[in-house]
Write a protein that binds this DNA or RNA. Structure first.
Lengths: 332, 332
DNA sequence: TTTTCCACATCAATCGTTTGAGCAAAGCTT
DNA sequence: AAGCTTTGCTCAAACGATTGATGTGGAAAA
C-alpha cells in the first residue's frame, strides 16, 4: 500500500497541488466547498503529509534528543518518562541516546545530534565529562541544550537539578522532630558537587536546631570503600546512635544490609531515612521513609524549560531546580 | 551558524552540486584530485548531509519506534537499553513512545508511526489490548512490527519473549537439588498466558523428579488478593514448607515482607527464589537467588530480529524466545 | 583528417510540501 | 461602462540530496 501525496489528491479533485495544500490548511483563499471536498478525499486516501518533506522545507526537525549515561538504574527511567510525556504533548519526537557513561561516546552522540538537525537536546553528562566544549558547539549550531541532574555548572548552558540541600535538610529535620539526636549521615564521594550540597543541608539542620554535630556523624564513602565494615563498627561502638540518613538509594541498600546483618530492627533499634527515587524503599521491610526526588518531575520540568527556550521565551539564569517530597513508610 | 550544503561546497570548489555529491560518495566518475579537494572543503565547512533531504529522496526514515506501556517499572528500562544499542549500531534512530498502558493511546501512537513513516516498530502491547488490528494496519503500510515480552500471539506478527516455562523450571529444579521438597509457588493472575507457562514449568519439575505435588503448593494471586495473609497462614499451618518460589519481582517483594513480619530467617527458616529482572534481589537481605530474565537481552534480540526482517532475510515462524540465567545470591 | 572512445563533469528531474506572486472571472463602485 | 476590489485558484521556485541522461574536450585509433 503506497502512501498518498498531495499529488494524488490533486488528481482526484481536479485541483492543483498547491490548491490542495492550502485547502487542507484552511487557507482563506480556498472556497469552503472546495475545502470540504478536498478533506473528504484526503480522508478517503488516508493522507498524511510527509514529515520529511515538511521538515526539509521548514528547516526544523521537531526532534528532541535525550542523552543519558544509562537507563537501567534508578531514576533515569523516570526522567525519560517525564520528558517523553512533555515532548509528545508538544508534538515533537523524542530520540533516545545512551552515552554508556563514556565521554568519547557522548561526543559522538552530540555530533549525531548535529547531523540530525535536532531542535533540542536534554543531557545528563557522563561521569567522565569535565568540559562542555561539545555542548557549546552544539549550541552554536542553533540547538538548544539543557543539562539534567548530573550537571556541570556553566553560565551558558542551563541546567536543572533537585534542590539537594533542601532534600537532606528535610530528611534530617524529620528525624530530629521525631526525637532523634544522634544521627549518622552517609554520603557518596565528596568530589561530587551534589554530595557537598547534601552534606550542607545535613549540617544546617543541626545549626538551626542548635544541636551539636558530633564529628564522626558524617561518613563519606568513596568508590571501593567498605562502608559495611565502617558502619558496623561505628554502630557497635556508639550505641547512642538512633538514626541513619543516607544520601542515595545505593547507600540506603548498603546500610540496610549492615543493619540486617547486625540483627538490628528498623525502626526500633535504629531509624532509617534516605533520599531516594522511591523504588527501593518499598522493597525493603519495613518500607523506608524517604525524601523522594521524582525523576518524572525532573524530566518534565527540564523538557518544559526546553520548550520555553525553543519558543523564544526568556529564562532567568542558568540554574533551575525542582522540589522534593517526604514519603513516610515507617522506618523512623 | 548556518549549516553548509552541497551548494556551498559547489560554490567554493567551482564544481556543480551533483559533482560535489558524487565526489563525497567516491563515485568513479570523479577524478581523484577533485575528490580530495571536495572532501577537504566539506570538512572545513563541517558539512553533513541533510537527513531530511536524503530520506525524502530514499523514501525511508531510518527510524525505529519503540512503544512500551511504561518505562518506570522493572524490566522495561533494560529492554529499552538493549534495543537502543542495537538500533544505534545499525545507524538507525530510535524514537521512544509510551502507551501508558492504554489501548486508545496505543492506537494513536501507531497512527503516529504511520505518519512518521517509521521503518520498524517494536511494541509491548498495553494490558488493555485484545486485538491487533492496528498492528496489522501498520504492517500493511509497509512497516515491520515485532511484539516484545507482553504479547498477543498472532501468526502474522512476530513476537519475542523469554522462555517462561524453562525459567520457572530452572528455579524450582534448583530448589529441589538443594534438598527442598515442600515448596510453595506463588503466581500472578492466571488469566495471563505468561502465568500458565510459568506454572507449567513449576509443575513439570515435580513430574520429572517424581516428587508428589501437594495441591496447596500453588498460590495464585489476582489483583486485590491479600497474598500477605494467605501466605502467612499457609506458612504457619504447614511448617514442613522450606522454600518459596515467586514468579515475579512484585510477588517476591510481597513474600519477603511476609517472611520478615513472621520473623523468619532467609534462608535458614525458609528459602526464597524468584524470576526477576535482577534489581530487587540485590536490595533485599540476604540477596535473593533468582532466574534473571534480562531485559537487555530481550531488547537486543528483538531489535536484531527486526533488522533481519528489514534486510529482507526470512525468519522462521512468528515465535522467538531468549534464554534466562540462574543468579545465586544466598537466599537458598 | 576523421572517427571512436573514455574520463570527467554538468543538466535536469525527482522526492513531497510550502508559499509568494500572478491571473482570470466575478462582484462592486461611481 | 470603465475601473476597482475580491474571490478562488494556478504557477513556479524553494528546501537539499540523488541519479539517469547528456555533453565536452582530448587522446588514441583508423
Amino acid at each position: 500500500m503506497r502512501r498518498s501525496t498531495l499529488k494524488d489528491i490533486a488528481k482526484l479533485t481536479g485541483l492543483s497541488i498547491s490548491g490542495v495544500s492550502r485547502a487542507l490548511k484552511d487557507h482563506p483563499d480556498i472556497a469552503l466547498e472546495t475545502k470540504e471536498k478536498v478533506k473528504e478525499v484526503a480522508n478517503a486516501l488516508n493522507y498524511h503529509p510527509n514529515p520529511n518533506a515538511q521538515f526539509l522545507h521548514s528547516k526544523q526537525s521537531k526532534i528532541i534528543a535525550v542523552i543519558l549515561p544509562e537507563v537501567n538504574t534508578f531514576f533515569f527511567p523516570e526522567v525519560l518518562q517525564g520528558i517523553s510525556s512533555v515532548v509528545e504533548r508538544h508534538g515533537y519526537f523524542l530520540i533516545f541516546l545512551q552515552s554508556d557513561n563514556r565521554f568519547s561516546r557522548e561526543k559522538e552522540l552530540i555530533d549525531y545530534c548535529i547531523q540530525m538537525f535536532v531542535d533540542g537536546v536534554l543531557i545528563s553528562v557522563s561521569s567522565e565529562t569535565t568540559d562542555l566544549e561539545h555542548l557549546l558547539k552544539l549550541q552554536e549550531m542553533g540547538t538548544s541544550v539543557i543539562q539534567i541532574d548530573r550537571v556541570l555548572s556553566n553560565d551558558l548552558i542551563p541546567y536543572l537539578t533537585i534542590d539537594d540541600a533542601a532534600a537532606s535538610y528535610k530528611a534530617v529535620e524529620y528525624l530530629i522532630k521525631k526525637g532523634h539526636k544522634h544521627i549518622i549521615g552517609i554520603f557518596d564521594d565528596d568530589r561530587l558537587g551534589m554530595t557537598n550540597l547534601r552534606a550542607t543541608g545535613f549540617k544546617n539542620v543541626f545549626d538551626q536546631h542548635q544541636i551539636p554535630l558530633e564529628n564522626d556523624s558524617i561518613l563519606v564513602v568513596r568508590e571501593g570503600d567498605d562502608v559495611e565494615e565502617v558502619l558496623a563498627k561505628r554502630l557497635d561502638e556508639n550505641p547512642s546512635i538512633t538514626a541513619l540518613f543516607t544520601m542515595s538509594d545505593k547507600l540506603l541498600v548498603r546500610a540496610y544490609h549492615v543493619i540486617q546483618r547486625l540483627n538490628l530492627k528498623v525502626p526500633d533499634d535504629v531509624a532509617l531515612i534516605s533520599i531516594s527515587d522511591g523504588k527501593a524503599p518499598h522493597y525493603l521491610f519495613p518500607g523506608i521513609t524517604h525524601i523522594r526526588h521524582s525523576g518524572e518531575e525532573v524530566g518534565s520540568a527540564a523538557a518544559t524549560l526546553l520548550f520555553k527556550i525553543l519558543s523564544g521565551e526568556a529564562i532567568d539564569g542558568p540554574f533551575h531546580e525542582v522540589e522534593t517530597t517526604l514519603v513516610e513508610l515507617g522506618s523512623v
